[in-house]
Amino acid sequence: MNSICAPSDTEEDEAWDLDIEPHASLLSLRLGEVWRYRDLLYLFVRRDIVSFYKQTILGPLWFFIQPLLTTSIYVLVFGQIAGLSTDGLPQVLFYLCGIAFWNYFSECFTKTATVFRDNASLFGKVYFPRIITPLSIVLSNLFRFAIQFVLFLLIAGYYYWRGEVHLQLTVLLFPLLVAIMAVLGLGLGMLFSAMTTKYRDMAFLLQFGVQLLMYASPVIYPFSQIPEKLQPLFAWNPLIPVFEAARHGFLGSGSVSPMGIAYSVLFSIGVFLISTLIFNRVERTFMDTV
């Protein structure tokens, strides 16, 4: 044990670029660092989009085919067979709008929730701000959402021209609605990501929970179809005002309440703050438990 170089305190203590300590500050998103890694964010998003259709014959067309097929199935099953009401709206439009929004939310949520598990091999070898991965999920799904929504607008355009449905002024809320979905999906996902690393049970619970949440949201039915007695039971769901406002803006049916939107906004921000706290804590040592 002779020549261990004991660090001397006399040496200048300045100019350390990197300081690794057991605990980091909890509520910081370290946005500066995220900004330095913005190229990585871009490349992750690009990877997700490009690899989605690599080695397929139809290529990027799949982005259109998928929602079209889902919509046709919904029209057939829920519209024709089950005969669920669509508030008098054309069924294709009704379901396509619901599906686009729901897919965006649920993809952000479930992909983020298992982000540590899915990327364990990558996270186990290199450091980069972990928040980049959930952000890339949100952005690459935003791209898919945009495509699905363009599809929706094309079909809606036909109905506008025929004069069967009309745009409302509430359509201006659209960017806010998308933002709520993104922040809520990201927040809930990060909240669960912490738990799925340690307790795998959460992953199963999550699958079931997301399905349940879909039926508790007006994706395949309009909110007006819920019996008045039961409506308070659904009031907690921050997704309801979003779906309702989206349908009101683009298709002119449904209801928009400023209170409901405000609740959704506050709920999303609250979840996001709490989840940031947890995510920061977990990202530093999750490798030991995953």
Binding site: E21, Y127, R284, T285
Partner: peptide, 23 residues
């Protein structure tokens, strides 16, 4: 620890400059 894949339980590591790791 050095490549910040996981955090130390105790103690401190400080470094000057960018670290590239070929783990």
């Amino acid at each position: 620890l050095l490549s910040r894949v996981t955090a130390p339980t105790a103690g401190r590591i400080r470094a000057r400059g960018r670290i590239a790791s070929l783990l």
